[in-house]
Write a protein that binds this DNA or RNA. Structure first.
Lengths: 222, 222
DNA sequence: GATTAGTGTCCCATTATGTGAGACGCAAAC
DNA sequence: GTTTGCGTCTCACATAATGGGACACTAATC
């Protein structure tokens, strides 16, 4: 009733408030505009969230995301054993290739970046931790959607998800062979060339094996 | 009505659910036990949270923190300009001292770790990002509570907050001189000695100055 | 096979709960 | 002084959350 989309219950509205605060701090009035909630309601929800540390206020009284989200975010990251297991392998991969590297998992009809390290170059691809990307484009997306073994063990895409960006991805599989994640290297076409797989493919595949053994997915190391 | 403490509204109960899931994944029945909520209510809340990505379910249907918290956590971290500004100074401090380093800010009657790098030693202090520590103990706590200038510019504590752990902290101040954060180095007494300030004090103070100029708190660099 | 105990899911009458227009106090701007 | 904006709080109202209990299902136990 009233609200356009995605918000009828208290909880939905509360999430709307958090969403609104995700990108920048907001005064109450701004919050009202962004969320479309009545002033009194927005105020009540925001202060309720503040009571739980999910929202905090700066010196000027503006609302912003609270510190509780730091620990919850950290805990959510820990809930993916893969992400921690992949840390060192990703660091090595980043150093080997010099480009940004990511670890994606499927989550519903999207893919989520659960670990990422950025390239040290000035010009680089940036995929922030927690970013939700479509399952319809990008080499990692194809890894996560197709159950097939690729002949090479990796898949490349050039300018598919975003213009000027190329990427190579390899599947991370569990003991039963199911794809549980995708490791990716991505960077500007100018550096990666139009055959990124040729250059980075073997590194990515090796990183995937490394992650599997580190996470204990494949039993014994090899 | 009903619930013991801290939960009467939907929102409070929803937060209870998130709290319950912070440390481990839970089946519905376990969630019921932990939160004290009726089965139907716990189920409704958990699935509602799932709809928003704040909760997800593994293959067995167990509830755990969702991927949405990754991006919210990331956004919450970005909301502290200090944390990002401090990144390089903290890395240098960690390398100089070899010990774990943290950046704390006051949040209500607690202090929160908004940035941390762990020592590379096997034996090390671990203060996870987002950790909430008391304002009553530890060198960083004293920095955040006392507005005074210390003669040395740093404060040390030995075995105060936790046995066997010593730490040195220095204040990070804004343009008006108000303490906005505390930089800390902490490690096992065996390595830091009982006078950690002597060894690390100047490094910590220098890091604090570095963070101030990087964050633009002090106007011109110096 | 029948029984029991344990899941997760869903319904629906009841009422507790959140609602939001409007009043209020306080600044700063005009 | 007046006006305009802000955040905050109240309170009669009815919407929206509630939770006991029914249901389907699986896995032990008899």
């Amino acid at each position: 009733m009233g609200n356009t989309i995605g918000g009828v219950g208290v909880l939905d509205k509360a999430v709307d408030v958090l969403d609104a605060l995700e990108h920048c701090s907001l005064s109450l009035s701004e919050l009202v505009v962004v969320t479309g909630l009545p002033r009194a309601t927005a105020h009540r929800l925001a202060t309720a969230l503040e009571r739980h540390g999910l929202v905090r206020r700066d010196a000027d009284g503006r609302f912003m995301l609270g510190t509780r989200l730091l620990s919850l975010g950290q805990a959510a990251a820990d809930a993916w054993p893969l992400a921690t297991a992949a840390a060192s392998a990703l660091a090595i991969l980043r150093d080997e290739t010099g480009e940004s590297v990511q670890l994606f998992v499927r989550d519903g009809e999207e893919r989520v970046c659960i670990a990422a390290l950025q390239s040290l170059h000035g010009l680089r691809t940036i995929v922030p931790l927690g970013a939700r990307l479509p399952l319809s484009a990008g080499s990692a997306a194809r890894i996560l959607t197709s159950a097939d073994q690729t002949a090479t063990g990796w898949i490349e895409s050039v300018g598919e998800r975003e213009a000027g960006v190329a990427s190579v991805s390899a599947p991370v599989r569990d003991a039963s062979g199911r794809v549980v994640a995708a490791v990716s290297v991505s960077g500007p076409i100018e550096r990666t060339s139009r055959q990124p797989g040729k250059r980075y493919g073997s590194f990515v595949v090796h990183a995937a094996r490394e992650i599997e053994s580190e996470a204990g997915l494949r039993g014994v190391d090899a």
